[in-house]
Design a protein around this nucleic acid. Structure first.
Length: 276
DNA sequence: ATGTATGTTGCCAA
DNA sequence: ATTGGCAACATACA
């Protein structure tokens, strides 16, 4: 599913494919996809040029020439494709941006969980989802001292805490399980119980893991593909996610799957012990 | 056939 | 204030 590395890979692909393109018109086939008025969305984007595509956490930010930004979240299965006008429209295509060069930028989403919203550039920071986001998982913005301080105030388990995007943004269910395994931390460990040493290890692993996953073009478990409809390669580098019953790569103990915060959670019961 | 699991965010309530 | 649970959906599979 699109976590930060997948969203970043999509962004890079779109950047190559449609940057500088002008919108001839927009068609909305499933209006609930658009937060706010779909007709207003269509009207305001007509004749605008796509000047830049940025990312914050798992959100894509399409910057247009008239000071407007389309904020898009892919949620579970959202995808952007660039197609020729003659290519048949998939039954799960919900929004089509007609480009003046004849091609079409299409938004596809089997489960219809994704959302798109048009806002004034700059004001996207006020949106609920973006306002609460923690730092980007890179050394320049994600600091161990802050991370540890925040962990010490939290009473929930580390897995749930990392998923809520406030400590650091970008991790989803797959990468959370991976970084906790790498850091030898049990997913149900209460944040307050983590030592500075553990927090430092976790912090460093989050930064390097997400960078490596971007390099590999993301992880394709069920259906993820990038803007070129290409699958990722990082699924071959996963150590615990989806490895239930397989031997732990460090100690040979069978990987277990449990439920933490209503989410399927993979871990090694030997390497990752709960700190009491 | 029917029920269950899937994963992200937003909303509701304890 | 913080935390937990569920809804929004469609599909695959037992």
């Amino acid at each position: 599913m699109p976590e930060l590395p997948e969203v970043e890979t999509v962004r890079r692909g779109l950047q190559k494919l449609v940057l500088g393109q002008k919108i001839a018109r927009v068609e909305v086939l499933y209006p609930k996809m658009i937060v706010g008025d779909a007709d207003d969305f269509r009207a305001k984007l007509k004749d605008q040029t796509l000047e830049n595509i940025q990312r914050r956490g798992k959100y894509l930010l399409f910057r247009f020439s008239n000071g407007l930004t389309v904020v898009s979240h892919l949620r579970m299965e959202g995808k952007f494709y660039v197609k020729e006008a003659t290519d048949p429209v998939d039954k799960h295509t919900h929004v089509i941006f007609y480009l003046t060069d004849g091609r079409q930028l299409r938004y596809n989403d089997v489960r219809k969980f994704g959302r798109m919203q048009l806002v004034q550039t700059g004001s996207e920071e006020d949106l609920l989802g973006l306002a609460k986001l923690g730092p980007e998982p890179v050394a320049e913005t994600f600091k161990v001292a802050d991370f540890y301080q925040k962990l010490q105030k939290k009473k929930k388990n580390i897995k749930t805490a990392l998923l809520d995007q406030t400590l650091v943004t970008g991790l989803g269910n797959i990468y959370v399980d991976e970084v906790l395994w790498q850091s030898k931390i049990h997913p149900q460990t209460i944040c307050q119980k983590l030592t500075l040493e553990q927090a430092t290890t976790l912090h460093d692993n989050i930064i390097t893991e997400l960078a490596k996953a971007i390099e590999a073009g993301g992880t394709t478990i069920r259906s993820y593909t990038d803007a070129f409809q290409k699958t990722g390669a990082f699924q071959f580098e996963l150590d615990v996610y989806g490895q239930t019953g397989e031997p732990c790569k460090r100690c040979g103990t069978k990987i277990q799957k449990i439920v933490v915060g209503q989410r399927g959670t993979h871990f090694c019961p030997q390497c990752q012990q709960v700190v009491k």
